[in-house]
Design a binder for these strands. Structure first.
Length: 231
DNA sequence: GCGACAG
DNA sequence: ATCTTGTCGC
């Protein structure tokens, strides 16, 4: 996998926003998934008070074993200097470069990627999951723990219950608010790239263990934040 | 001008 | 995201 030109990642906010507007038109929202054998999870963590960015990618085998456990096929942690502060709406310019470098070190090319963050549920329809999917040229799903934009009701109480996330003057459906675990705040699932919302929801639910986050994202999260005794 | 605001 | 202790629950 090759990286995108570095200059694309060092833009002033107004130029970054212009780029997002152009790229959002290239994001595919329909299914273009082949047979899925490997699912990757991506998340970013920080060290040194935020000066070092840690991009973690965990590749899991699909389907899970008889015991419901997913086999970790490969995992990578890419550490590099943090290049930008966190600015709502411009998260990809802070996290995607390190994530791309991490994918570049992977020997397996997954067929599906779950990203910790929004897909098209973004003011300009280009959240970090969509941006990464476009650059990796792979199907991606956005799995966020909180809302960036849009309106929604309260999803039902059972695992798997969901309600649409709408945004804009025409109530465009940009994602779904999913109850991934009983009694816990819902997840915000959205199309990243080349995966329809209904399919995205099905995959997230299929990857749920007994925790709030689906396994790909949960494991990447642990690795990025070096918790649970992982490095 | 006043809120809202992924990680 | 990260800084942080104990505490409630299975």
């Amino acid at each position: 996998m090759s990286l995108s030109p570095l200059h694309e990642w060092n833009l002033a906010p107004r130029d970054a926003i212009a780029l997002q507007r152009r790229l959002s038109g290239r994001v595919e929202r329909e299914d273009r998934l082949g047979e899925v054998c490997h699912i990757a999870g991506v998340d970013i963590g920080f060290e040194d008070g935020g000066d070092i960015t840690r991009a973690a990618v965990v590749v899991l085998a699909w389907p899970p074993g008889e015991d419901g456990r997913f086999e970790v096929v490969e995992q990578v942690v890419q550490r590099e200097p943090t290049r930008m502060p966190y600015i709502p709406g411009l998260l990809s310019f802070r996290e995607v470069p390190a994530a791309l470098a991490a994918f570049d070190r992977l020997s397996v090319r997954p067929e599906l990627v779950m990203v910790d963050g929004q897909g098209i549920a973004h003011p300009r329809r280009l959240g970090v999951a969509s941006h990464l999917g476009l650059w990796l040229d792979l199907p991606t799903i956005g799995v966020a723990k909180s809302r960036l934009c849009g309106r929604h009701g309260e999803p039902g109480p059972a695992r798997g219950d969901w309600t649409p996330l709408v945004d804009g003057p025409d109530d465009e459906v940009v994602g779904a608010v999913l109850r991934s675990r009983v009694g816990v705040k819902p997840l915000f699932v959205s199309t990243g790239h080349r995966v329809a919302l209904s399919t995205a929801l099905a995959w997230v639910v299929a990857c749920l263990g007994r925790t709030k986050l689906p396994e790909p994202t949960r494991l990447a999260d642990r690795l990025a934040s070096r918790r649970g005794g992982v490095r």
